[in-house]
Design a protein around this nucleic acid. Structure first.
Length: 576
DNA sequence: GCCGTTTTCGGCCCGACTGTTTTCAGTCG
């Protein structure tokens, strides 16, 4: 039995879809592969485990008999015969070329067929020899566009931007557009609005005085950060910023504002499902509204759009076609957690280890945020580069915490630790001191490259320590930098349930760890979740907002998160 | 390739912009 991960199956199916597209296969068949890969990619459960347990894969939405068999083949053999036969017909290097803007499957196929182009290098030579513009269906402008694009490093295409990195440009753009005459409203939609951890591009929706659309579009493409204009019309335009962020804009009439916001917020999968539902009800949904024949029956607000289709309003964070539409039909949507629900923060560092602010500064800042309690959780000795504490250091610091706690009014400072989980699953500090703490978080910081079985068992063994209350940043992922550890997270969450250990949702914008799909899995199992900032400065305490967004994407309610509770109730719930 | 209180066969979301087109294909979201 091989450990084939969901993301490997996703990659294989996406590659199959791309290759079939170049080959010119039936688009609906291609879509089936893409749809299946999306479903698998969003799952928390490992498909390989399902195969192993002899479960019926066709229970999964979008997976029928054929794809179930292909998944089984991938899981048992580690490869897919069908993909290999496709790769014999279509060079896989063509997929790189498809990442170039304006080059899709048809054009790439034509260049391959007519000129034998398979690599970026081939393409460059053909462009320089002016062979591209000679092809039918191609012309001077297309050749120029390709020339412009291949002079850029290829890795820049398709790279996703951390939400928090996109934020400054997004807000600056919004403010800029709002200042333009004739503009009535500017809204950021797309994955930015859905609160995805990383975004592919930025989507802006604008309403303006009728007749002034062109004026607004002129302003849009002359924003100071614009580096390149991809397309410009009166309803829709697209540009590339200097920081490589692509920005799309749509201008719509106010009567269609809700439908357009819905359409432009996505996700694509959610929109497709909504449109399919509309077709069932003999309606048509587009970005201008819900239509019964040519009559608009909804569209001014998003709520109207959902109601016209017999659905409750769905929050943007849930719009991934992961069950939210079914829940909205039957009124089973969760009441999502909100920033105002948070009453404390249970993971932070101070200047005693690698933080930038003192204990009292952190406490004052937390108090200013309206919190009732915090836990100060320094690193343990193993994390030497952060001046991690040994037992003696910790005892001293605990005394210091008690001191400050006595001095400060209106907030309770709890004595905590982020103790390192050692190679063998032991903890980096003795029980004799752990037992005297209020909050014990256990985290893996070293040896993150163990094989799955070993890594999983290491973490589960750590949870056997009766003083460990919270598993910190459970996957160890750093978005765009480091993959999650190779672990069976489902098994770990099940163990957490059994041992009454809570899972942390670490709110650092490049962690957001526990990932949302596992938040949902854990909450469904009844595992307690702690939403923490892991702040290393007073400023960082505000990152709770990022964690709230991830929690909402994971369908979490106030009840699922322990630090929405009063101090007493929270402590009771974390007791083992 | 999937899917079905209209169907096990015949559908499968919908529109804007661009370029190379004399009416539309390709790409994108």
């Amino acid at each position: 039995m091989m450990d084939v991960h969901n993301n490997e199956i996703v990659e294989i199916f996406l590659t199959v879809a791309d290759l079939m597209e170049i080959k010119g296969e039936n688009p609906f068949r291609i879509r089936a592969y893409r749809e299946a890969s999306r479903v698998i990619g969003d799952m928390s459960e490992q498909v390989a485990q399902m195969v192993h347990d002899d479960r019926d894969l066709t229970e999964l939405k979008g997976i029928g008999k054929d794809l179930a068999e292909k998944i089984r083949e991938i899981v048992t053999t580690g490869q897919l015969e069908f993909l290999e036969s496709l790769e014999k017909e279509i060079p896989a290097s063509l997929l790189e070329l498809m990442k170039i803007p304006d080059l899709g499957p048809k054009k790439v196929a034509a260049m391959y067929r007519e000129l034998g182009i398979t690599t970026m290098e081939d393409l460059k030579k053909a462009v320089e020899a002016k062979k591209i513009s000679a092809l039918k269906g191609f012309g001077e402008k297309t050749e120029q566009k390709i020339f412009k694009s291949i002079s850029r490093p290829k890795k820049e295409f398709g790279r996703r931007t951390l939400l928090i990195d996109a934020e400054p440009s997004a807000l600056a753009y919004k403010k800029y557009l709002e200042s333009k005459p004739g503009v009535k409203s500017v809204n950021l939609a797309g994955s930015f609005r859905r609160g995805k951890e990383t975004i592919g591009d930025l989507d802006i929706l604008v309403t303006c005085d009728t007749g002034r659309e062109k004026e607004v579009m002129d302003a849009f493409v002359t924003f100071e950060e614009v580096n390149r204009i991809y397309a410009k019309g009166n309803k829709k335009s697209a540009v590339l910023l200097r920081n490589d962020l692509q920005v799309d804009i749509r201008i719509v009439p106010e009567s269609s504002y809700g439908a357009a916001l819905h359409y432009f917020t996505g996700s694509k999968a959610h929109n497709l499902a909504i449109r399919r539902l509309a077709v069932q009800k003999k309606y048509k949904v587009n970005e201008y509204g819900v239509f019964d024949g040519s009559r608009q029956v909804a569209g001014k607000t998003e709520r109207d759009v959902y109601e016209a289709l017999g659905l409750h309003y769905i929050e943007p964070e849930l719009r991934e076609n992961m069950g939210e539409i079914e829940a909205a039909k039957s009124g089973r949507l969760p009441a999502l957690i909100e920033p105002g629900h948070m009453r404390g923060d249970l993971h932070m560092h101070t200047t005693r280890t690698d933080g930038r602010n003192s204990l009292s500064e952190m406490a004052e800042a937390a108090k200013a945020l309206g919190y009732e309690y915090i836990a100060v959780t320094e690193h343990s000795r193993k994390v030497a580069m952060a001046n991690g504490l040994d037992e003696k250091d910790l005892r001293e610091y605990m005394a210091r915490i008690e001191q400050v706690n006595a001095q400060i009014e209106g907030i309770e400072i709890l004595k905590g630790i982020e103790v390192d989980i050692l190679q063998d699953g032991g903890l980096d500090l003795p029980d004799s001191v752990l037992k005297d703490l209020d909050i014990v978080i256990g985290s893996v910081h070293y040896q993150q490259r163990f094989p799955m079985k070993q890594q999983t068992e290491r973490i589960i063994r750590a949870m056997d320590n009766p003083y460990l209350q919270i598993l910190g940043h459970p996957t160890g992922r750093l978005l765009n930098k480091r993959d999650p550890m190779d672990i069976d997270l489902e098994r770990i969450i099940e163990a957490a349930k059994e041992k009454k250990v809570a899972m942390e949702l670490n709110a650092q914008p490049d962690r957001l760890d526990l990932p949302h799909n596992y938040c949902k899995f854990a909450a469904d199992m009844g595992v307690t979740i702690v939403l923490s900032t892991d702040a290393h400065s007073t400023e960082n305490l505000r990152r709770m907002a990022n964690g709230i967004t991830e929690a909402r994407r994971g369908w979490l309610t106030k009840e699922d998160v322990v630090n929405t509770r009063s101090l007493g109730e929270m402590r009771e719930m974390l007791k083992r």
